[in-house]
Nucleic acid binder design. Sequence first.
DNA 1: ATATAAACCGGACCGTAGTCCGTTTAGAAC
DNA 2: GTTCTAAACGGACTACGGTCCGGTTTATAT
Lengths: 206, 206
Amino acid sequence: MFFVSLIPIRPELPLGAPSERSDAARNRERLLQAARELVAEHGVDAITMDMLACRADVGKGTVFRRFGSRAGLMMTLLSDAEADFQRQFIFGPPPLGPGAPPLERLIAFGEARIKYVEEYGELARAAAEHSPQNRHDAPPVVLWHRHLEMLLREAGLDRDPWLLALSLGATLDPERMLHSLRIHGVAPERLAESWRELVTRLLKDC
Amino acid sequence: MFFVSLIPIRPELPLGAPSERSDAARNRERLLQAARELVAEHGVDAITMDMLACRADVGKGTVFRRFGSRAGLMMTLLSDAEADFQRQFIFGPPPLGPGAPPLERLIAFGEARIKYVEEYGELARAAAEHSPQNRHDAPPVVLWHRHLEMLLREAGLDRDPWLLALSLGATLDPERMLHSLRIHGVAPERLAESWRELVTRLLKDC
DNA sequence: ATATAAACCGGACCGTAGTCCGTTTAGAAC
DNA sequence: GTTCTAAACGGACTACGGTCCGGTTTATAT
């Protein structure tokens, strides 16, 4: 099977790539492994960039050259899960993938997103922190947005589906859902049920 | 006229208050004036707490004792506008205040919120930064949320209006709307139109 | 006027994200 | 193997939010 990296969070080979130097590659692996270990041990919110540099036996500058920022590191850690999620709603089986009616795909999209947040929510939140740009215009976010917009159009909602998709995206925002789940103790099923109610009502009579 | 501070952002007299010392009062005034000047001169995002302390001729510790945090400072700067907004949708004339049917009140609420963000968006965003707690559970946020929930109930939406209100609140989130307005250049009227479309569809046949 | 306690003050200090730049090293060319 | 250069490295440095604590000021009681 041939895996396409649909919209990579962090394009690793910017198209004219003079292939990575061996020490760089080695350090990247060390950093990623160290990062995963630290996340497993202390949780996303507790790890600092110095910690990571130390654990990977690497200078701080190296960490930042590799990932650009803390958010960039988190995006990199998320990229596999993210690519998988993208594959599912673009190429996967219905109702999440193509083939089902738009309403059902919308419902499935929300449900999948909720599961994603249950599993990777802390990472996703950290990947968007301290930067409205990352939060709203990161490539994966734009892709979800376009997907929602397309489904709305398919369902016959022609009045500014772009902005409406933004509203729906806001409902599925990781930080928001995580807050409901963790702080207010809302059950994931209840979130899903509310999402279903929301999109069902929206698409009625179109 | 007697102004009630409905849900103060920052309760200034915690009910058993041994009344503020005169030097404290003087410093508070100096700080607020300096803060407003700095915001006017450099914009919300550019001002730092050191800058403020320096401009107000006050120690840094004093700034933080007064406001608790950068977000706290911003809340204080917002509190007048916020109290006014609250008064309008609770006591003001219809359709924003009581007296109009729920759908019209919802529409008016969104429109008022958009105007608010146009005017105070940067402050509002800064007041919520770096703290999901502030962003989602600050007293004013809880109040808007309850208001939305009440209107949804009045309109006959009985399936988990609490969560549905959360979704609507997400649509009106200052950071999100500000991003649409400033970065994507969406016209306020278009935001308002989209909001109207959203709530109208949601409340149809209830 | 004086004593006393509580509230307040200031600025040194800390942790963390992010930058800078002199030094090292991989790898290509010869 | 030697030389050369661009890329990568590392860690000192900066900026900023936030904390701490010894000294000072205010208000009150006597």
